[in-house]
Nucleic acid binder design. Structure first.
Lengths: 194, 194
DNA sequence: GTTGACAAAGATAGCCCTATCTTTTATGGT
DNA sequence: ACCATAAAAGATAGGGCTATCTTTGTCAAC
């Protein structure tokens, strides 16, 4: 009896992630992945049922990173003020995005490819995190803390502003410490707050 | 001498646009396009040099729509106050987006596919409009009217908020008159203004 | 009506791709 | 050391795609 090399699964996922970031999600193929990892194309199918399963696996991997960040635990802790919790959400996205520069890009691209394109890619629709955030922002609107605009407008604002900033750093347009979280928080909060 | 049917070029462009909106830009192929238009696949090459030329043509078509809107003429008219011009820019994007619901999606997708992925898709990088907007916002930052954050952060805010709103309407989540321009302007301006 | 020119369709070479089926190779258990 | 078993590689069927080259069809001028 021979043991399956579980580290290979991770290598495959890394290759998939690299291809997505370099060429886009639609460019991911078992052929290319196998070539990068240095295995045969058919071998990929021992670790993943099919091409979509590979993509989904990378997607889950990134979602896990978000959950592991732990910044979102306090989101429905009602001992903390609503405003503070919203600030916590924004800070959570901000710090996560800096800590995992490509994560949001990966999630965005995979989600789009798998057809769930219309939702803001952060946090995930299928995961508990997302409904928590939606609930938080809905509460904010109802309480008159946030402007009465659609929740996904609020969410896409947070996402796009922070993601653009992170991409800028990633592309070397400026360094991380050139701007502080408070700069972006003031920007975002200025829009959201009633 | 026989005349080439120029209306066919337009039909092809429409087919390309439809495919992009239904299946994404990478799903566009000469085979699919020909099938939709009802012509042979090779016939497509009489009207377009290659696949990318088709996409680029649709891209230009959408950019033209923006320019024809005419809302951006006053952007560097210094008889108008800086604040008013910025408001004019936002209003221009807003009205254009409502008048041409799929335009921003098309531009975004094609631009991404052709590798210029990092810029905000509105207005275009290669066209005079874009540099005008950049200049306007840069002026706003320098004059202390806008928060001192990267220009593309300001731009991506405007784009993503309005685009999300337009998509919502398009998907039937709510109707156009449920929110006014002023609602969104207040939202956007709250972020941008210093 | 004949013919030249060009549009349109057809056919094809040459890619890349997925998913499965078959063969080879390596290893853990005895 | 052997061998069963599962991993790894190989081979292949079948499909979609691009771009070009060839053939057919049609119109306009003469």
């Amino acid at each position: 009896m021979r043991k399956k090399d579980e580290s290979k699964k991770i290598k495959i996922e890394s290759a998939v992630a690299d291809i997505i970031l370099e060429e886009g999600a639609d460019a991911v193929s078992t052929v290319k992945v196998a070539k990068r990892v240095g295995i045969s194309q058919s071998n990929v199918y021992l670790y993943f049922k099919n091409r979509d399963a590979m993509l989904l696996s990378v997607y889950s991997r990134e979602i896990e990173k978000i959950k592991d960040t732990g910044n979102f635990n306090q989101l429905n802790n009602h001992d903390i003020s609503l405003t503070e919790r919203i600030r916590g959400y924004i800070k959570g996205v901000y710090e996560f995005s800096l800590a995992h520069p490509q994560s949001l890009s990966l999630i965005q691209q995979i989600k789009y490819l798998l057809g769930k394109a219309d939702e803001t890619p952060f946090p995930d629709t299928d995961q508990p995190t997302d409904s928590t955030v939606t609930a938080l922002l809905t509460e904010g609107v109802k309480a008159g803390v946030l402007k009465p605009l659609p929740i996904n407008v609020h969410m896409s604002l947070v996402f796009s502003v922070i993601h653009t900033h992170t991409l800028n750093i990633n592309k070397g347009r400026y360094t991380e410490n050139q701007y502080s979280f408070d700069d972006f928080y003031a920007f975002i909060w200025g829009a959201m707050a009633k």
